[in-house]
Design a protein around this nucleic acid. Structure first.
Length: 423
RNA sequence: GGAGAAAUGGCAGAGUGGUCGAAUGCGGCAGUCUUGAAAACUGUUGUACCGCAAGGUACCGGGGGUUCGAAUCCCUCUUUCUCCGCCA
């Protein structure tokens, strides 16, 4: 959520910057400012009336104390009218505040100047790439065929027990998955991130805090009886730890990591993109989250990008790094880098990580602030990144590393799997 | 799940209808004293919003209500503790 002060002061720049998202926010911004003006003036009136009736109430108290009953009762009658208009005005003020809040929720984050314009993922800007795409020859098998051949993943069993998009991992498949989790967590720890195992369900306030609500209502699984949401990413619980928190400046940066399963309804996704491991309703991910000083957040973003790069390089996967264009940029993000790995049998690039700087957009909703040297409270910056999302990594490993003898396990994982070849 | 108790400022802890944004203690900050430190003493010390300012408003777990007036009374929700039941 953008800060209302900022909208007041930088209206034109914000409207201009939002055009990179192919969004003309002029009307919305205007009505926000209009609503804001009305709200402030109504609130001013309300407070004047409240001040008046507070004053009278105090006087009545004194009159009673002095035993002047009749005068006190006369004063009481005087407040009737005030009470009426106070009630009415309060209603108006609350309504204006609600509408203002609703409108503010609808404005996405202002893109960083680096964000290229563009309509879709076609227009994302490749900023880096590495690794070697293997030449598999004509007998290359897709990961879903390999998963069946080596009995690593059972998609049909998942359909039977739960539904499409909830596979079972089996034997060496399950162990490879667990190895990846442990490898990613150990790497994150070595990079200075503190490990957490957070709750896998969150309340509504947390959904609002990181911006999944109200924007992505319907993409999360919702347990209605308890009004709790299954997390779509560890970002939600990890970042919401800092909701309503004021940290000391010297405690920054805060660097945390956590492994969680992630649950996504993926309403509206059909077709070939959902084949095999490409898109699941439940998947595993290790996430890294940072709370940063505003002066430092872009350096932190770069650091996170090079950290994630080291992971895909260590796994020996061909990758490319994309700077998301305005059309593809997430609602809450100011600047996002996506990582894709090449899955050589499908001959497709698969997104495995998304690293973003949210600047104060989340912090404003979270009321996450830091206290500076002058004891002033300022909104902090939040960032997060996948490091990494597992299923597509597994897909790429299975496909790219297939040989006539079996599937080669990446060297860095061998000490975690306990085997170097899937046969 | 059942019965009971509780939730107050950074912490502890008073406050059961009026001058309470809230006693007191601890902690924090500033000063006096001291070669320095400690101790002692003095002062100061919540947050948010509106306003150029003066000032005003709101906040005693959340929401609603009664009242001229609520930390205090009523309703409701949440959380914590104690006991009982159930359970990995």
């Amino acid at each position: 959520m953008l800060e209302i002060h900022r909208i007041r002061e930088e209206k034109d720049q914000i409207i201009e910057a939002l055009k990179v998202r192919n969004l003309d926010a002029t009307a919305k911004i205007e009505s926000i400012l209009d609503m804001d003006t009305k709200w402030r003036s109504a609130k001013g009136e309300l407070e004047a009336i409240a001040a008046e009736s507070n004053k009278i109430a105090k006087e009545i108290g004194q009159l009673f104390a002095q035993g002047k009953q009749s005068e006190a009762n006369a004063a009481k009658a005087k407040t009737q009218e005030l009470k009426e208009s106070e009630k009415e005005l309060k209603e108006t003020v609350n309504q204006l505040a609600d509408s203002l809040q609703q409108l503010l929720y609808e404005i996405p984050n202002v893109p960083d100047p680096l964000v290229p314009s563009g309509k879709s993922d076609q227009d994302n800007e490749e900023v880096d790439k590495g690794g070697v795409i293997p030449n598999l020859g004509q007998h290359a098998e897709s990961h879903w065929d390999l998963a069946k051949k080596y009995n690593l993943i059972d998609f049909e069993m998942g359909v039977k027990v739960t539904g499409a998009g909830f596979p079972f991992f089996i034997g060496q498949g399950a162990r490879l998955q667990r190895a990846l989790i442990n490898y990613f967590l150990d790497q994150a720890r070595d990079a200075g991130y503190t490990e957490f195992i957070p709750p896998f369900v969150v309340n509504e306030a947390s959904g609002y805090g990181t911006g999944q609500l109200p924007d992505k209502e319907g993409q999360m699984y919702h347990c209605q009886i308890d009004d709790l949401y299954l997390i779509p990413t560890a970002e939600v619980p990890l970042t919401n730890m800092y909701r309503d928190v004021i940290v000391n400046e010297e405690d920054l940066p805060i660097k945390v990591t956590g492994y969680t399963p992630c649950f996504r309804r993926e309403a509206g996704s059909y077709g070939k993109d959902v084949r095999g491991l490409n898109r699941l309703h439940q998947f595993d991910k290790v996430e890294i989250v940072r709370v940063e000083h505003p002066d430092n957040s872009y350096a932190a973003l770069d650091e996170m990008v090079s950290y994630v790069k080291s992971l895909v390089e260590n796994l020996g996967l061909p990758y490319r790094i994309l700077r998301l264009c305005g059309g593809d940029l997430g609602f809450t993000s100011a600047l996002t880098y996506d990582f894709e790995v090449f899955s050589a049998a499908q001959e497709k690039w698969l997104e495995v990580s998304s690293v973003s700087n949210f600047e104060t957009f989340q912090a404003n909703r979270l009321k996450l602030r830091f206290k500076d040297a002058e004891n002033r409270k300022n909104l902090a910056h939040t960032l997060n990144g996948s490091a990494l999302a597992l299923p597509r990594i597994m897909a790429a490993i299975l496909e790219n590393n297939q040989t006539a003898e079996g599937i080669k396990v990446p060297e860095v994982l061998v000490k975690y799997t306990g085997f170097d070849m899937i046969r």
